[in-house]
């Protein structure tokens, strides 16, 4: 555990708190992509299957349970809550996320470090996480004015990915036998997807106006 990894995990946690707060406090999920949230739920389930048979640390296990719980809570609110579900902008959330799932699964079957059931599913979760934000980014472009909480949620998610890259650089330079090419390449692609969003987020923040993605 290093400071970048811890900061990354806490930023990830904070992003989920911000999103849940927006949904619960405003009773609205306007501008939030249910497709992205469902992809994250799939990512967490397939990656954290190891909760059943492996133990790394209490910290890891608790965080896994928290991430799983928050992902399913968010999906529950957006799809089933009697008030919140009516605020979901279905017509703006049209990204074909099934292609992302299928593509990630094919890639995981082709490129993995061990051809076992759990390892392939874990690899699938890495690939799927890399692209899971795409429906949300497309939806932001279509939404026009984006409220602060939704903008901050995506910003925090991007920050978390950036901090993980610093964590890998730190670990690579301090640990022996630390090498995880699949995670690194996917993570760099994932972070790059936020570049455009970051540009407009910081620009609008600088000019002190609400976030609009042209």
């Amino acid at each position: 555990m290093n400071v970048f990894r811890l900061a990354g995990d806490l930023t990830h946690l904070l992003s989920l708190v911000v999103l849940l707060l927006k949904i619960v406090a405003t009773k609205s999920c306007r501008g939030v992509s249910a497709k992205t949230q469902e992809l994250y739920a799939i990512v967490f389930v397939t990656r954290y299957l190891d909760l059943l048979f492996s133990f790394v640390s209490l910290y890891n296990s608790v965080m896994k349970v928290v991430f799983l719980g928050s992902a399913f809570s968010i999906v529950y609110f957006m799809r089933y809550h009697k008030v919140v579900r009516h605020t979901y902008d279905r017509e703006l959330d049209t990204f074909r996320s099934s292609f992302l799932v299928a593509g990630s699964m094919v890639l995981a079957l082709l490129i993995n470090s061990k051809y076992t059931f759990f390892e392939v599913l874990w690899t699938f979760s890495i690939y799927l996480e890399a692209v899971a934000i795409l429906p949300q980014l497309v939806m932001l472009q279509r939404t026009g004015n984006i409220d602060n909480l939704t903008g901050n949620y995506v910003f925090l998610l991007g920050m978390y990915r950036g901090l993980y890259i610093l964590n890998w650089i730190y670990r690579y330079s301090t640990e022996r036998r630390y090498w995880q090419m699949i995670v690194w390449v996917s993570g760099i692609i994932q972070t790059a997807l936020y570049a455009d969003f970051f540009y407009y987020y910081l620009k609008c923040w600088n000019e002190n106006r609400t976030l609009v993605i042209p």
Partner: peptide, 10 residues
Amino acid sequence: AIINEGHDEL
């Protein structure tokens, strides 16, 4: 517990 296969990040 079985030690995992090197996936120690979240």
